[in-house]
Simulated assay, not measured.
Amino acid sequence: MSQPKLIPDHFDFVATVPQWQRIEGSTQLAREFIFKDFKGAFQFMTLSANFAEEINHHPDWSNTWNKVSVRLSTHSMKTLTELDIAMACAMDRFALQV
């Protein structure tokens, strides 16, 4: 399996993943998703988990009732890569579906 592509230095995070925060001093993107209830949060996590398996890139996340806190990073490369952006964009889409 080939290594994912690094994100270029000039990459515009705000334009591409505006609801995500780049954690200062780290190689992570973070976002908290809030849903109507636990069922919505779980549906979101199921969609996200299936996509994560497809691209073999898994989020660090936690769930408390209607909230899902997510951190993305490509741990094997110790930086953010195209996989993190793909996962963030997919999760944004999935959040709108539930």
Rank of each mutant, 00 (worst) to 15 (best):
T79R: 12
R71L: 10
L83W: 04
T27H: 15
S48H: 04
K5T: 11
S62C: 10
M91T: 00
T16D: 14
M91L: 01
Q43D: 14
F42P: 02
D92R: 08
D12H: 03
I7W: 08
Q97C: 07
C89D: 09
P59V: 04
L6P: 01
C89Q: 15
F35I: 05
L47R: 15
A90P: 00
K39F: 10
E54D: 14
L6Q: 08
Q43I: 12
M91I: 00
K36L: 11
Q19H: 15
K67V: 09
P8Y: 11
Q43G: 09
I55T: 02
E32H: 07
H10A: 13
T79A: 13
W20K: 01
Q21R: 15
F33Q: 04
S62N: 12
A49R: 01
M1P: 08
P18F: 06
Q97G: 01
Q97D: 12
L72N: 07
A95E: 10
V14K: 14
D9R: 13
N63Q: 03
R22N: 02
T81P: 03
K78S: 09
E32G: 02
H58Y: 06
V14R: 13
W65K: 02
T79I: 00
F33N: 05
P8R: 12
S48L: 08
K39D: 11
F11S: 07
G25Q: 00
E54T: 12
I55G: 03
S73E: 04
S48C: 13
F94E: 09
R31A: 01
